[in-house]
Amino acid sequence: MGMTTHVNIVSAEEEIFSGTAEMVFAPAIMGEVGIAPRHTPMLTPLKAGEVRLQTAGKEEQFFYVSGGMLEVQPHVVTVLADTAIRAHDLDEAAALEAQKQAESALKDSAGKVDYAKAQAELAEAMAQLKAIEHLRKTKR
């Protein structure tokens, strides 16, 4: 049996693969890379494509990733997969959308915040909740 390295493939929403492999191929941003066990530490973004694992017994496993990051440590390879296609323009559009939403919330310009007043209001709300709780208990 040849040497193996531990491989983790995870996305923000779920764990996709965890196990060992003899060889890992990943679509790095500069071109496909093949990682053998005891590779020197490396960090690179991935582009959309296929992550290929050669597991013991020359079996192959494929995983599609839409992008992400690849971290290589001598005995662990970690693929942090994205859940969606990322592009600078798309991210920019999303940020603009969030900003636009915020602006619509602020019809009157942002003035000075009265923190004391806010604290008092919140304290009042908390007191109301406590009072309700108290009423409930004493009624029993």
């Binding site: 559009a93 940020a95 959308e97 900003q99 939403q101 919330a105």
Partner: peptide, 29 residues
């Protein structure tokens, strides 16, 4: 908004099962 804070990013209606990429915009801001 009621406090007159300076809101620079906002995300509403993310639902019960938000996707990770829905949050990109507000984080990027």
């Amino acid at each position: 908004a009621r406090l007159n804070s300076n809101i620079i990013g906002k995300l509403d209606d993310y639902g019960d099962a938000p996707r990770a990429h829905e949050l990109i915009g507000s984080v990027k801001v």
